[in-house]
Design a protein around this nucleic acid. Structure first.
Lengths: 125, 125
DNA sequence: CTAAACAGTGGAGTGCGGTCCAAGGTCAAG
DNA sequence: CTTGACCTTGGACCGCACTCCACTGTTTAG
């Protein structure tokens, strides 16, 4: 499919997709006329990218993962390893969040940690 | 305490603290000589700021929360509400992570979602 | 008295993750 | 053969969250 359709399907702009290609997250074939051509798998991949991003991974990290993946001798194995890695990261993140939650629960009902701000700057913050 | 000590205590740079003041996250008194003076409560507040940031809140949002807080009729109640809100955010994040984890677990062993990149650009990704 | 270690200011620069734009090429429909 | 929708490129620009810098003022120790 061409870039416009892919953009529409995943809810990104064409500019964003070209940018992703620049930073190595997305690849494309080229038609004879120079147009980018994407395989259907680009859709789940971009959904995955979005998810990873939401989890706090930078585009650079996502690109690295993708590269590791495409360079691995055994792709299926590499992919499984990558996923296993991410699952570990997720577990860590979840533990952090749980700790945070506990801290907040404990603090709710405590003194205000912010000093009173009588005439605090009301810029477009 | 002065800015250098606060910076050391919370692990931020003095520049960052001045920047936080600019965007309305932090306030300070001034000594006669112009030096900023911070109360001890600034430490837990900044820890809280960091936490909120880790949860994906922008500094602008955090500043807004801080303002709401300092303007609330009942500060203790407002603070509890704020914490309760963040706990809900945490719960949502955790659920997302759990979902992603399940997805990754399911996908591990599946086809690679990234197209092969024969000579992909090796910029400093 | 001087030097070092702090503090202040304004402004420029950085890295990330895009977005916007101008100038132009391609292609299908009428 | 023109119109309009789509595509190409490069480069400028944006908001966020800092970070660095130059230059100046203050305080403290020797």
């Amino acid at each position: 499919m061409r870039i416009g359709e892919l953009a529409a399907r995943v809810g990104l702009t064409r500019d964003a997709l070209r940018f992703y290609e620049q930073v190595g997250i997305l690849t494309s074939e080229r038609r004879a006329n120079g147009y980018r051509e994407y395989p259907p798998e680009a859709v789940p991949w971009l959904e995955y990218v979005r998810t990873a991003q939401a989890l706090g991974f930078s585009l650079a990290e996502i690109a690295d993962h993708g590269e590791e993946l495409s360079e691995a001798p055994d792709q299926a194995e590499a992919l499984s390893a990558l996923f296993a890695d991410k699952i570990r990261v997720i577990d860590t993140r979840m533990a952090e969040l749980a700790a945070l939650r506990a801290e907040l629960t404990a603090r709710a009902g405590t003194e205000c940690p912010l000093r009173k701000t009588p005439g605090s700057a009301r810029r477009r913050v």
